[in-house]
């Protein structure tokens, strides 16, 4: 077990170090959510004067930040295959499960760092004032949510292996997960079809839990959100492990 821990750490370390070495990725990953927060929050906020829209979407934008970075981390296995690094991982005396877990935790770490920065900025801008416990719980939710999204990315990367489809895959997973969720719109005001779709979207439960913790404005009981997230996490991680197990160079 201790042997596998150092190997999980190795895969985790690679993800985090790669991220730290890429200044443009760090800047880019924060610029987009801030842009969304300011433009959408300000623009749509002006349309609904009696509703504090920027505050409402803050958890949604945190969810978006984590969603984008985590999907990217998971699907980057396609790049590892193209650029050869996957061979280095697969030829090592390491179980496939170790690689999946390391990858998931590595992607989650960089995602949660970004999510936490957006949360901090939101607090500084006065969009929210959660308690310390609320912040700590929010970080915990972010970790679960990010790990499950990376797992979904790994699932796709294990099925679709051509580099040509990389961008397509990223967009095809990311866009529906983001827009067909409660990140930008309150569930109460959604048309029936969107409400139904968002109910089957893991992003909705991550964002809802964050909303409860950050604004005290979630729709579902907090415990229900956590249980659903954990259930999806277990299934997604298991499936990612099983599919990655069958992958070849």
């Amino acid at each position: 077990m201790a042997i596998e821990l150092i190997k999980i750490y190795a895969v985790w370390f690679r993800e985090v170090k790669r991220f730290a070495n890429s200044k443009s990725r760090i800047v880019g990953s924060l610029a987009m959510p801030l842009f969304f927060l300011i433009a959408l929050g300000g623009g749509i906020g002006a349309l609904v004067p009696d509703f504090n829209y920027p505050t409402f979407i803050l958890p949604g934008i945190i969810g978006m930040t984590i969603l984008f970075n985590s999907i990217f981390s998971g699907v980057s296995i396609i790049w590892d295959r193209e650029l050869g690094y996957l061979k280095e991982l697969l030829v090592a005396p390491t179980s496939r499960a170790t690689i999946v877990i390391g990858k998931a935790l590595g992607g989650a770490t960089t995602s949660v760092l970004q999510g936490a920065v957006i949360l901090a900025l939101g607090i500084i801008f006065g969009l929210a004032s959660p308690s310390l416990i609320g912040v700590l719980l929010a970080i915990f939710i972010m970790v679960i949510f990010a790990t499950l999204i990376v797992s979904i990315g790994i699932i796709f990367a294990s099925i679709i292996t051509e580099i040509e489809t990389f961008q397509l895959v990223v967009n095809l997973i990311m866009m529906p997960l983001f827009f067909l969720s409660n990140a930008l719109f309150p569930v109460e005001k959604m048309p029936e079809w969107l409400k139904t779709l968002s109910m089957f979207n893991p992003v909705s439960y991550g964002v809802d839990a964050l909303r409860t913790l950050i604004n005290g404005a979630g729709s579902n009981p907090f415990v229900l959100d956590i249980l659903i997230l954990l259930a999806i996490l277990i299934v997604a991680l298991g499936l990612a492990g099983a599919l990655f197990n069958r992958t070849s160079i």
Binding site: I6, K7, Y9, A10, V11, F13, R14, K17, R18, N21, S22, L83, G84, Y85, E88, L89, A92, P93, T94
Partner: peptide
Amino acid sequence: LDNRLSAYDNLNIHGML
């Protein structure tokens, strides 16, 4: 190799694996 890592990190990760 991982181009975005240093020579040392490439080796260090290998050693851990």
